[in-house]
Design a protein around this nucleic acid. Sequence first.
DNA 1: GCCTGACTGTTGGTTGCACCAATGTAGGTA
DNA 2: TACCTACATTGGTGCAACCAACAGTCAGGC
Lengths: 164, 164
Amino acid sequence: MVGTTHKCYAGRVPPRSPEHDPGPARIRDRPTWLISRAYVRSHRLLNEGFAAGGAGLRSYHYRLLAALEESGPRSQADLGRATNVDRSDVATVLADLDQLGLVARAVDPENRRRNIVSITEAGSSRLRALDEVLDEVQDRVLAPLSENERRQLTRLLKKLGDAP
Amino acid sequence: MVGTTHKCYAGRVPPRSPEHDPGPARIRDRPTWLISRAYVRSHRLLNEGFAAGGAGLRSYHYRLLAALEESGPRSQADLGRATNVDRSDVATVLADLDQLGLVARAVDPENRRRNIVSITEAGSSRLRALDEVLDEVQDRVLAPLSENERRQLTRLLKKLGDAP
DNA sequence: GCCTGACTGTTGGTTGCACCAATGTAGGTA
DNA sequence: TACCTACATTGGTGCAACCAACAGTCAGGC
């Protein structure tokens, strides 16, 4: 953009920083800001990936499918606790997945409050497709970092997430 | 919360991992997931901080105030570019700050499309109060990490954010 | 037995943040 | 002149997180 020869600015408006703007130093180095920036970036790439190859599914759907495949059939509340997704969101997202035939829900005969949710064949195969999308996204998110730096970042973020 | 012994499971549902659940490995180590977790945590602490000592202001308000104090009066569009906030959001957030007397907006006489926004005395003093809140939040967010790890994380996240 | 309390799934919201579309106005350039 | 751009503003979308309330269900104590 602005690859032209003359930037005359006849109106001479720009009050400061005609060059690139590093952003306000007050927030620039603050971890909350950096984390937020990283999240926005990751979230954007993730959504782009899902939009391109996710067939209408989003982050929540993937989380629940992955958790189901990993741990086997379990109740919705259990699923929510394992994935940090609210019970109510679990219900609505599972309704989507159920309608698509990717999961099956059945009342637990031994505890009729519960729905035992299990992933279907179609769900597993869809999950594998999403896995490829996800892997590519990881690569794009981490693109600016070296292999070693990626491992460091993963370690630090994991440690950060272990906190209450 | 729930420090009790209530693992009744009379209906013995859990088909796997009767011990502690490390979460699905499929997402557990993925940077997008870790970044998202870190963001949720950071965002929650941030909102708690703002709710406690922010007098109704939120992240967007702080961002714009900080950018204004840092760089001096400038146009809204300029402000938005410097802070990664959409023009439309800049407008509405500035309307809040204007009404609170924390910023002042005046049409640029030399380019009447623009609003030159400047921070007021009250704005600067409010910003300093928010700074203290923010600093405390940083500390709580980074609590699980050592001093050296905090520096590493900051460096890596900054590098990550330099990407397009 | 009955009552109480806790848990489950569900519906129907709200909030914060990022983002997009359209519009009216103003400047600059061809 | 006409045209293209930039600006501020309004109004709306989408996603993720979260909360409140409810009916149905179970376990324990009385």
